[in-house]
Simulated assay, not measured.
Amino acid sequence: MRNAETISWIFLALAIASQDSPVNFISISQIADGINHSIPNEKEMQSSLTWLNNNKLIVKTGKKYSLTEIGKEIFSETQSETKTLLRMWKRLATKIELKLQV
């Protein structure tokens, strides 16, 4: 899986899991498994969460994560484009790929 695909997978899982309140590693992992039928490994989770945090798309408070306002905007925009999880994941990957190229 490409970096952008992994990062967008974790971002999508976090966005879905944290709609009501910040979530922990386990909650993100469970949603990620539901999206991709695969449990993200430690490296995938850590590198993705670090990238998302460094790019101000998420915030970590203690041991929990949630979307920043920018992250919420990106997720909302993606949701308005499609309601299918796999298409949302693909669109997010495209957006993240563009950020990785900058």
Rank of each mutant, 00 (worst) to 15 (best):
residue 2 R to V: 07
residue 4 A to L: 03
residue 5 E to D: 15
residue 6 T to Y: 02
residue 6 T to E: 03
residue 6 T to G: 01
residue 7 I to A: 04
residue 8 S to C: 08
residue 9 W to Y: 02
residue 10 I to L: 10
residue 10 I to P: 07
residue 10 I to W: 10
residue 12 L to H: 12
residue 13 A to M: 09
residue 13 A to G: 12
residue 13 A to P: 12
residue 13 A to F: 14
residue 14 L to G: 14
residue 15 A to P: 10
residue 16 I to W: 03
residue 17 A to H: 06
residue 17 A to D: 10
residue 17 A to K: 03
residue 18 S to I: 14
residue 19 Q to H: 04
residue 19 Q to K: 10
residue 20 D to P: 01
residue 21 S to C: 05
residue 23 V to P: 00
residue 23 V to C: 00
residue 23 V to R: 00
residue 25 F to M: 05
residue 26 I to R: 06
residue 26 I to A: 07
residue 29 S to Q: 10
residue 30 Q to R: 13
residue 30 Q to V: 15
residue 30 Q to F: 14
residue 30 Q to S: 15
residue 30 Q to N: 12
residue 31 I to G: 01
residue 32 A to G: 11
residue 33 D to F: 12
residue 33 D to V: 13
residue 35 I to L: 05
residue 35 I to Y: 02
residue 36 N to H: 06
residue 36 N to V: 10
residue 37 H to P: 01
residue 37 H to C: 07
residue 38 S to A: 13
residue 38 S to H: 01
residue 42 E to C: 01
residue 43 K to R: 13
residue 44 E to T: 07
residue 44 E to V: 09
residue 44 E to I: 06
residue 45 M to R: 10
residue 45 M to G: 06
residue 46 Q to V: 08
residue 48 S to W: 08
residue 49 L to N: 02
residue 50 T to D: 08
residue 50 T to A: 12
residue 51 W to H: 06
residue 52 L to G: 12
residue 53 N to Q: 11
residue 54 N to T: 10
residue 55 N to H: 14
residue 57 L to R: 03
residue 58 I to T: 15
residue 58 I to R: 00
residue 59 V to Q: 05
residue 61 T to K: 00
residue 61 T to I: 10
residue 61 T to C: 00
residue 62 G to S: 13
residue 62 G to W: 02
residue 63 K to D: 15
residue 63 K to C: 11
residue 65 Y to G: 04
residue 67 L to Q: 09
residue 68 T to E: 09
residue 69 E to S: 12
residue 69 E to R: 10
residue 69 E to A: 08
residue 69 E to M: 03
residue 69 E to Y: 08
residue 69 E to W: 01
residue 70 I to T: 14
residue 70 I to M: 08
residue 71 G to D: 04
residue 71 G to E: 07
residue 75 F to Y: 15
residue 76 S to R: 11
residue 77 E to A: 10
residue 77 E to P: 00
residue 78 T to C: 02
residue 79 Q to C: 08
residue 81 E to A: 14
residue 82 T to K: 01
residue 82 T to E: 00
residue 83 K to Q: 13
residue 84 T to G: 01
residue 85 L to V: 15
residue 87 R to D: 14
residue 88 M to I: 14
residue 89 W to Q: 09
residue 90 K to E: 14
residue 92 L to K: 09
residue 93 A to G: 15
residue 94 T to K: 01
residue 94 T to C: 00
residue 95 K to N: 11
residue 96 I to F: 11
residue 96 I to V: 10
residue 96 I to S: 02
